[in-house]
Structure formats: C-alpha cells, structure tokens
Design a protein around this nucleic acid. Structure first.
Ligand code: SF4
Ligand code: SF4
Lengths: 156, 156
DNA sequence: ATTATTTCAGACAAATTTATCTTAATATAA
DNA sequence: TTATATTAAGATAAATTTGTCTGAAATAAT
C-alpha cells in the first residue's frame, strides 16, 4: 500500500530536483541538457523531460532547442519563484482545498472529524511551500550543504 | 497528475473513516456490518472490507462472523489507539524515514535541499497522528460536530 | 542549405493503486 | 444439524501513475 512519505508525487519530486539542479547550474552561468539533469538528479530521463516541458510552459524555466540548447533559469527569476509554483504547475492547486479524509472538498462549516488537526498542518505546509524559493534551495545545493542523489544510487 | 491533497492513500482514508464510524457506533453499544460502514462512510464496500481485514489483524478493531456479526471496538481501546497506528497498519512506517525529494532515505547528515523545511512539517504531522485518538474523532462525529460524507455524495 | 544537436509531443508500456467479484470459512439461531 | 448471515481471502479487473520510445520541430554551426 501507498506510503505517506510521498508528500509529493514522483512527478513533483523529479520536477523539484530538476529545477534545483538547473538553477544551481544557472547560478554558475551554465545552460544544462536533459541528459545531464536526469543523471545528476537521479531521475528517469524521458519522464523528467516531460515534466520539464510542463514547467517550461508555466514559465518557470527556459528551454532552448538545438546545439548549445538545454534548460536554464534567470537568477532574478529563481529568487522570485516559490516552490509552491512548481507544485502547482505539476500537481495542481488541490493543496488549497483537499480533505484529509477524501471528502469532496474542505469546508470548515461542515468539517470532517480530522479537520482541526489536519488544517493546522496543511497551513504550515502551504506556508513553507510559499516562502521557500528556488534560489534558496539551489544555493544550498551549490554550496555542498545538500545533495540530490544518495551515493548508493549513483553507484548503480 | 497526482494531487498533494492526498496526504493519505485511499486505503488509509477508507480505513480511518471506517474506524471512526465503527467507534462512533461502539460508543452507542452497537456492532456494525460492513455494508452499513461502506454506506455511512461513503466508501466502496469490497475495498473497505479488505482494509478492515488488515485492521482486524492489527487488533485495532474486532470482527465477528455470522448473524449479529460485524465490527466493533472497545471504548477502552479507542481511547488508547492513536491514528498513527491505523496509518501504520495500512501504509507502513515510512512516515518516519521518507524524503520529500524521494531520496532513498532521510539523513540529516547528508540532507536533500528541502530537508530543513520538510522535517519541521513532518514532525508536526507525526505529532498530530501520535496524539489524536480514535475516541476523540468518534466523539466529535457522534456529537454531530463533524461528518464523514458530504451531502452531494450521499445523494448519488 | 545541410547537418548535428537538442527539446517537444504524443503514442505506447509497465507498475502500482484502487476496486470488484466469487468462493470459502465461521458464527448464530432455530 | 441445518439454514442463514456475515466476514475472510484470493483472483481478477479497472484506473491512475510512472516510465519509455519514436519521430517531429527548432536551433546553431558550418
Ligand atoms: S479535515 Fe474536514 S474540513 Fe478539512 S479537508 Fe478534511 S473534511 Fe474538509
Ligand atoms: S528532506 Fe533531506 S533529509 Fe529529509 S527526507 Fe528529504 S533528503 Fe532526507
């Protein structure tokens, strides 16, 4: 059965990791190709490519076809964009109305038994997503403070 | 693409709603049948039955076959059991080691870029799950303070 | 213009989750 | 002990998510 750990869908995980890596390279002035992204983020290439297509449509990243092409993101932009926008582009806005117990919608007037407990955490999650920028994450990655793939996976 | 709203899997949602309903009926001294549970919790009958099988094995609820059979839970037990135990029985213990970005495990020594932001929320979620009892939720439901199915769904 | 390189788009396939169905096992009452 | 009511278990099916593949479109260099 499914794991609660999966706060994000795989699509979202891959999208976030890819954007973090693209941004980290853009910080160093490099445009980066999908093959490199897939490798460095430890994500399936074709699937990641599809997700990057979506993110390009949402103007979260830039893409350029052809030789010397690839993906990048302006430093100004990575400071503006919150990770909530990436989650929104990939998984939609359901975080704003989803119900812990799967009721058709969240409604405080007629709440499910878990409402009070749940809403509190959902608000904190929203706040986190809406205040964390790509720049922040990319900087952390670039400085070596954090990683995108565990060694045991790189090895394979 | 998948929705982040789904904090819990469908299995877990159905399990939680079913247990809340069983408990609410046990509070009134009634043992309750699967058909009634499925209807009152707005969940698919056969699927719910399977989940209740799991919860019975984990001794979260009691089941009795035959006429006058069904499911129930002792009041003492519903005061003891935290919803984390239901989540654990159905979705496993991954909440304790899952990574927001899908790394093979969570490791603060070698964190992913979202670690700090994520861990904070995960801890609050854990705390919520580990302090909320079935009794608390069932009481809230019994008193009419909360619901398990939205009207627009009952209608169908 | 031609060629090489790259993303883009859509069809396809595999894996997982969700859901149903059918039969067996068990308990109760008469 | 028989008939009935119920859960248990396992096979199967549908839906969704995840993943791959192939060819088209765009870009740059020569
Ligand atoms: S907890 Fe209640 S109000 Fe909140 S989403 Fe669930 S049903 Fe809606
Ligand atoms: S946020 Fe970092 S430490 Fe936490 S689970 Fe993800 S990779 Fe592991």
């Amino acid at each position: 059965m499914r794991q609660i750990e999966n706060m994000f869908s795989k699509s979202c995980e891959y999208g976030l990791k890819a954007v973090i890596y693209i941004a980290s390279q853009s910080l160093e002035g490099k445009r980066i190709k999908i093959d490199d992204i897939a490798e460095k983020a430890g994500s399936p290439r074709a699937f990641t490519a599809k997700i990057l297509g979506t993110l390009t449509k949402f103007n979260i990243i830039n893409s350029l076809k052809g030789p010397y092409g690839g993906f990048d993101i302006e430093i100004k932009r990575m400071k503006e964009i919150k990770i909530s926008e990436i989650v929104f582009a990939i998984d939609g806005d359901s975080i704003y109305n989803g119900c812990a117990l799967g009721l058709t919608e969240c409604n405080a007037q007629e709440p499910c038994p878990m409402h009070e407990n749940f809403v509190q955490i959902r608000e904190e999650l929203k706040k986190m997503l809406e205040t964390t920028t790509i720049f922040e994450l990319a900087t952390k990655f670039n400085s070596g403070e954090s990683i995108l793939v565990r060694k045991d996976r790189i090895a394979s």
